[in-house]
Amino acid sequence: MRVIKTILVILLGFGSGAVISGAVFAFISVLGVIPRLAGKTGTEKSIHIYEQAIVIGGVFGTVWGFFEFPVPIPKVLGVVIAFCIGIFYGCMAVSIAEVINVIPILTRRMRLEQGLFLFILAIAIGKLAGSLAYYVVPGFFLPD
C-alpha cells in the first residue's frame, strides 16, 4: 500500500511541476522581458543562452526554495545578484503595466501627447520609493 501511495505522490509532484513550470515560464516569456533585454543589448543571436539561463535559474530557485541549503558566495556577488533581481523585476513590473496598456490609455484620456519620458521616469522613481519604504522604513510592512 505504502509503495502505491509513494508512486502516486511522485506522479503528483512530477505533474504539478510540469504544469506549473509551463504556466510560470509562459508568463515570463509572454511579458517580453527577454526579447527586450536581448534587443537593447544587441545580442539577439544569443537568446538560446538566455533560455538556458532561465532553465537553470528556475530549477535552482525551486530546489533552493524547498531545501534552503547554504550557498556560500561573497557579499559583493550577493549585491550584484540582488541588483540583477531588481532589474528583472523592474522590467517585469513595467511589462505587466504595458500589457494592459496603462500608459497609452492614461495619456489618451488626459489628452497628453508629450511627456511620455516623464511618466516613465515617474514610474521608476515611484517604484524606487515604494521598494525603499517597504524594506527600510521599520513597521511599514515588514515587522521591525
Binding site: 510560470v24 543589448t41 532561465i54 550584484v80 528583472f88
Partner: peptide
C-alpha cells in the same frame, strides 16, 4: 558582447529563480 550576454544571463537567472520562489 560576451560581458553583455553574461550580464543578461545573470539577470534572467537571478530573476527567474526569484520569480519561481515568489510564486
Amino acid at each position: 558582447k560576451v560581458i553583455l550576454i553574461g550580464f543578461v544571463s545573470l539577470v534572467l537567472m537571478a530573476g527567474s529563480a526569484t520569480a519561481i520562489m515568489s510564486f
